[in-house]
Amino acid sequence: MTKWSAADLPDMSGRTVVVTGASGGIGLITARELARVGAKVVLAVRTVRRGRTAAGLIPGRTEVRELDVSDLGSVRRFAAEWTGGIDVLINNAGIMDVPLTRTADGFESQMATNYLGPFALTNLLLPHITDRVVSVSSQLHRMGSPQLEDLNGQNRPYKAMDAYNDSKLNLVLFSTELQRRLTASGSPVRSVVAHPGIAATNLAGHSAAGKVTSALRFLFNDAEHGALPSLFAATQDIPGNSYVGPGGFGSLKGHPRIRRPATAGLDTATAARLWTLTARLTGTG
């Protein structure tokens, strides 16, 4: 099996890529590697100061713009201020296993950051997107439930990892329905999903899951390898609705290849219902 790596990235000169959550971790590596091969990379970040520091580490063309994907007001401002085309949108920003908090819009923070915000951002930017949308999910979507009767988690006890798993399953379902809609409209734009396997980043460094990852680091991807599925999904000629992850056992680590998401993530009826509910909740789509 060919071991695809960042050395295999094509020339991206003349192309514009937006990467959310690009001030650190996998997002920063993704932005760095795309800029290295010629793309103009827009780092869409919650804290501009951190974004500028990150951009200073990246050789190539970069721009830093403020975006808090958990805040619909911020998402709307970002989209309204955008002019010109976007070749690739990478919905990378995410949080994991955090205490219960509500956003300014009243949304549970993990659902807002990992799913509702990316849903709204993608729909608002879609008229500008010419190539593809990459949604960064997680293998833990396999343990999620879409919770269609209580999408915002207001009527059940809060369990942080359950909320994370649910948000990542919803992101896969969103990608499935987005591709169906793109295909039905005759659009050439593709919607694909990437996941980093189990990557040793600071995403879950505060949690029990993060402590296990740290202790068993040799079994999992480092951040450089964790970024490869996003880079592969953003640049390779793959079909819409592809699910890209590490090629090793259990898709925990290794070089990227096309895998298969959970069957629940390909349920078109659930995906369509979820889209309708989310569009109503966010006022987009």
Rank of each mutant, 00 (worst) to 15 (best):
D131P: 05
D131V: 09
D131S: 13
D131G: 08
V134P: 07
V134C: 09
S135P: 03
S135E: 12
S137R: 09
S137T: 14
S137Q: 03
S138M: 07
Q139K: 15
L140T: 11
H141Q: 13
H141V: 05
R142L: 13
R142E: 14
R142G: 13
R142F: 08
M143I: 12
M143L: 15
G144V: 12
G144M: 10
P146V: 05
P146C: 05
L148M: 08
L148R: 05
L148A: 10
L148E: 08
D150K: 09
D150Y: 11
D150C: 11
L151Q: 12
L151D: 04
N152C: 12
G153Y: 15
G153L: 14
G153M: 13
G153K: 10
G153H: 13
Q154V: 15
Q154E: 15
R156Q: 13
P157E: 15
P157T: 06
Y158Q: 07
K159N: 15
K159R: 15
K159C: 07
M161P: 07
M161S: 12
M161V: 14
D162R: 15
D162V: 15
D162S: 14
A163C: 05
Y164H: 06
Y164A: 11
N165G: 03
N165H: 12
N165M: 11
D166V: 04
S167E: 00
S167N: 06
S167F: 02
S167C: 01
S167M: 07
S167R: 02
K168W: 03
K168M: 05
K168F: 02
L169H: 04
N170M: 13
L171E: 03
V172D: 00
V172W: 01
L173C: 11
L173H: 11
F174Q: 12
F174N: 02
F174Y: 11
S175N: 11
S175R: 07
S175H: 01
T176Y: 06
E177W: 03
E177K: 11
L178V: 05
L178A: 01
Q179I: 00
Q179C: 02
R180W: 08
R181L: 07
R181F: 03
L182V: 04
T183I: 09
T183K: 14
T183C: 02
A184D: 07
A184Q: 09
A184T: 01
S185V: 06
S185L: 05
G186W: 01
G186A: 06
G186N: 00
G186M: 04
S187C: 02
P188I: 00
P188V: 00
P188Y: 01
V189P: 04
V189R: 05
V189E: 06
V189G: 08
V189F: 02
R190W: 00
R190H: 10
R190Y: 02
S191H: 03
S191C: 02
S191G: 05
V192W: 09
V192G: 04
V192Q: 06
V193E: 06
A194P: 00
A194G: 06
A194H: 12
H195I: 08
